[in-house]
Design a protein around this nucleic acid. Structure first.
Lengths: 253, 253
DNA sequence: CGAACCTTTGATGCTACTCAAGTATTGTGG
DNA sequence: CCACAATACTTGAGTAGCATCAAAGGTTCG
């Protein structure tokens, strides 16, 4: 386990995949969701799995990335660090989301595992060739990219105009929705939310400091919008109250 | 002006296009840039032009948009307004940029002309069919969408982590780069920048108030980073000094 | 059991917001 | 072409919200 801590720089060990793409639990959410059986056969043969521990860096900004991939299990972040150390997380990658920038070998952001992570990886040139030759892949990638663009813009609204409290509530809603989608469930009262990020990652995602994140969570607990199980788990007595406290307007995920 | 305020709902007058796409000045920047001559013939026949005055709304959030288009001349904004009136601009559209959300008839944001505007428009179902049947179009759309996603994420860094002063400088750099790209020129010292936005639109794009925008521009003038010609035009004595004041890290446009 | 990390809490300060007023600039009708 | 209104922009005073600095619990892991 210790040996994997530097997987980011050394490159995580490739584990030749055994399972077939047809049996993949997250295929319906991934770029390969619309592929035919023969196309999945092909992908099965060229895919490998990579594993990372929380904190490992998958790709560094400016690095020529040798692979592209899909998150299978866990959560990763995309972020940028300014020269003086300020950091902004610009996106979270949940199972099904794509790791790496298609058609551009140098990554425009850092990719970091925020939890232990498993990624279904493809050799980059091979993946791009396959993309160009497989309309089902390319069209699905376009669809996913358009959705991500909508999400990024929604997050711009949050970063530019929402209060610290509204940011926290919006984040909780987003985290819940992403988790629920994987289980094909809908938000409801009394639901349990797992926060997959540290206070620091949350702060960097919301454009706040860890102290403000901590204080706002405290305030939400006191006002009854959330119930804290522990630092990473909370209960939502009323989904509607949470949405209200989020300042509304969170459509795309 | 007053009479055009409702162009959005009534629909701006369609002007059957006379010019051929081959002669289009902004084709190289647009979604049709990789199309073959026959493909351009086809597009020529199905395109129309729409004109708007500054302030007109092209599309309203939630509206079922009947058309998609490309900005030919002028600048448009995409924005969202929260229920209490707070507004965030999530993107600017310069000549070549696409108006409307492909494959989703309801617009996720408001589209507003920030200057007088000319748009090359297509009937939406027809455009989407053409997209699916024309790989050159679809692949170019994917490329553009991936670039826009990078830009949106860069802007998230600005909104989340940059100071008011850095935001203003970053905006000036962005405005300059977008204008220069159309003329195939590069940034240089002594360059003239036109700000296509009102102070209010700038504020809403940068997550600030108009007072702060005005004060920061004043401060930049006093410190010599910019020279004001008038409220909408300024001179950059040193491009490098401007980048320095922007806090660095502005790659994609 | 102790070190490292994560989280919370407190005191203080500063950036950017709010409220308010005044100065250009633009557009309109006489 | 001028007078006036409307809009855009600037400037000032006071303040709120979040950041910063500091330190003290908790939790996890070796």
């Amino acid at each position: 386990m210790k040996a994997m801590l530097h997987a980011a720089t050394t490159g995580a060990p490739d584990i030749r995949a055994r399972g077939h793409c047809l049996d993949c639990a997250i295929r319906q959410h991934a770029v390969c969701s619309d592929c035919s059986a023969p196309e999945l056969d092909f992908l099965t043969n060229i895919k490998t799995y990579k594993s990372y521990k929380a904190g490992d860096r998958l790709l560094e900004m400016g690095e020529r990335a040798a692979f592209m991939g899909t998150v299978v299990e866990g959560v990763a972040s995309m972020s940028r660090i300014l020269s003086d150390g300020r950091r902004q997380v610009v996106g979270l990658l949940f199972p099904g989301d794509l790791v790496g920038r298609p058609f551009s070998p140098v990554s425009p952001f850092d990719y970091v595992a925020v939890t232990d992570l498993r990624v279904c990886a493809f050799n980059r040139p091979q993946f791009e060739t396959t993309l160009r030759e497989t309309p089902a892949l390319e069209q699905r990638l376009l669809e996913m990219t358009l959705d991500e663009l909508d999400s990024a813009r929604e997050w711009m609204v949050l970063l530019g105009r929402k209060s610290a409290q509204e940011k926290l509530c919006s984040f909780m809603i987003m985290a819940a929705q992403r988790a629920l989608r994987l289980e094909r469930r809908r938000p409801m009262d009394g639901i349990l939310i797992e926060l997959p990020l540290t206070r620091e990652d949350m702060a960097d995602f919301l454009g706040l400091t860890i102290e403000t994140v901590s204080r706002q969570i405290g305030a939400l607990k006191k006002s009854g919008v959330i119930e804290l199980i522990d630092a990473r788990h909370l209960l939502i007595p009323s989904w509607e109250a949470l949405e209200e406290a989020a300042g509304g307007e969170l459509a795309a995920v």
